[in-house]
Design a binder for these strands. Structure first.
Lengths: 206, 206, 206, 206
DNA sequence: CATGAATGAGTCTTCATTCAT
DNA sequence: AATGAATGAAGACTCATTCAT
């Protein structure tokens, strides 16, 4: 029978170290093996605990992995500079560095591949990493717009996608890992958003 | 003495319908289930053949899936228009339509997730779909450059990535499926590449 | 901190009954079915455990079977008599009885048949049953030699082979199961080894 | 519909070369792989025919293997000498040579192991190889008895088993392949059967 | 006749999950 | 709480055999 006395748990408290070890091992293995290929045995031995200890905390494999993804802190604090270009490049390079550090493309691939079966994975990834990073970029662009460095009528969301997008596109093309990509993307977007806009091809959208 | 009449193989010929059914089922299931989750039983019953019939053609699961991916024709012929913007948008929209049609993001996710275990998948995807599409886009841009609609010194590869990238970035952000994305991406890139370049932020790369 | 109380392993202990049941079932089936024909399903259901329980103890089918063979105690303690002939006959009859009890000829056949693929089987059979039994026989003969009942220069190894060999030869000839075989073999060997040796047909070997 | 015109078979006659190739390949593989492990595919490719061609001749795997064993001629004509010892040694050495040549111990093992499932195998082996060889040995011993080189009351069957048996016993003991075994066995048996038998340990059999 | 295709039954092994200590 | 045992449900791959050409 379960102890229901709340506020003061009876018995030995769950080890916080094991908590962390499990989540860290799970995230790492999720990236390197993918959802289905990763086994709880692998997680258990990587975390130095028994399989049952995992099940004690997470009822199911999917639970564990969503928790692992939720616990991941993958968007570092933005860099506090002043220049628009510098700031954008910094965010993008931090993005690339983070992805590389955690074998992120495989992780992203797993979340995409599992979208039908475990939609929480992609949702979490979005909420925890994608959207915060986009917010960072948009903020910089908004400040630039207020500073007159960006056209007042510029649509910022497509610009953000044009900043981040080349990373994915390059990876898919086998052009990943090129250090210049961030600067090139920023330059391209800033060129497109430059204020003196007179009458380029950019017709108003239908 | 062996039959020497060449060109007419002995025995029952292999059913071409089954060939097709197997590859089609495999591709479909690869996209909807992912590499590991998809089972040969599923493929067999989806294709209406026995499991052994699959093994007769493909020694291993990996073989089957690479063959299925290789057989997929996913880059349609380019649209024969004249206008730069129209052509670029057409390629991008065909891209998006194809991805949607074959549950492409899940497929891409699978290939990414499996990169460590079955690198052939991503390699094939690249060779068969990504690179051809990039070539299409680059060709259009080159013609535009010759026609004076694009700066002569423009670096085209980053531009291509800026055209395709937003598709991925949008999807990751949960903004996928918006019909305007292609036009927005094209307009942004064309704006950046416009010829009268006088003095934008684009400092020369280190 | 890990539990350091040694000698008392954590978790549920492995059932010794299941251990025994598995090994017994495996040995039995190895004899009745042969190596390849015997399936883990058969072992599992004969032992009243799940297949996974077997795999928990033995990583592979070969492991299981070598363990089963190794665990088999098939050479009973020698009979403590005094008379040479009686002792030899006793060892041989115990041999025959053991072989019959465990369907031994089929087991021996399996080990021989598998020699190329799983040499451990025959090696174990040799080490655990053949050689100990030979040692028993040789010991009796050595004592007989010391007691003057056997020629001093007699070569004992061939004599041992002549004692055991008829069992195999009879079986191959379809003459297995005859109860007199042991006494006949012993008599023949003792006759050949009798001491008054003057100069019979036994010419010295080249 | 099957052609039933007997005496004059219609259609192309079955290739005798293929017949032989199939049987030879089957026997070889039966020895090297064992009954269950050997596959019809292996036989087919070793014989250079298709699997169906095998089934055309032999309805089932067991049929093929019994036929292969039946076709094997493994007892060479007896050596035409005069001396008892020489003749016995010759038969035994031919026996050992044949066994070695056809990987015979594995073949014997297979027949023993399969005795419960395919008794025909051991029966054939017996009829075609064991019993003929025993007949050869007995014949030599009978002539020796008539020539007075062997006790008149000697029981010959046990003697034959004592001649052949050491081969099996040695093999089981890991002493196989020793060239002296045949002479040692013959010497031992002849010593036991020598005529001047007055009063050795060999008490009359019960 | 001869061949290659097609298949259904079966095998070892893996794994998420539940139990007992 | 933590651990190791136990298990049922798959899954990829094999093989003897039957079909179609």
């Amino acid at each position: 029978m379960r102890t229901t006395k709340i506020g003061k748990k009876a018995g030995r408290p769950r080890s916080a170290e094991k908590d962390e070890a499990i989540l860290a091992a799970a995230l790492e293995l999720l990236a390197t093996q993918g959802y289905v290929r990763m086994t709880l045995d692998q997680v258990a031995s990587a975390a130095g605990v028994s399989k049952s200890t995992i099940h004690l905390r997470f009822k199911t494999k999917a639970d564990l992995l969503t928790a692992a993804l939720a616990a991941a802190r993958m968007v570092d604090a933005p860099p506090p500079s002043g220049d628009v270009r510098t700031d954008l490049v910094a965010v993008l390079e931090d993005f690339a560095a983070t992805v590389e550090r955690v074998n992120g493309m495989a992780l992203i691939g797993t979340c995409l591949a599992e979208e039908d079966h475990t939609p929480d994975l992609l949702a979490l990834l979005r909420e925890r990493t994608v959207l915060p990073r986009r917010a960072l970029l948009r903020e910089v662009l908004e400040q630039a717009r207020e500073a007159g460095q960006v056209r007042p009528d510029a649509d910022l969301e497509p610009a953000v996608s044009a900043l981040l997008g080349p990373f994915y596109a390059d990876y898919m093309a086998g052009r990943g890992g090129r250090p210049e990509w961030a600067e090139q993307a920023v330059d391209l977007v800033l060129a497109a958003l430059a204020p003196q806009a007179s009458d380029r091809g950019g017709r108003p959208r239908s």
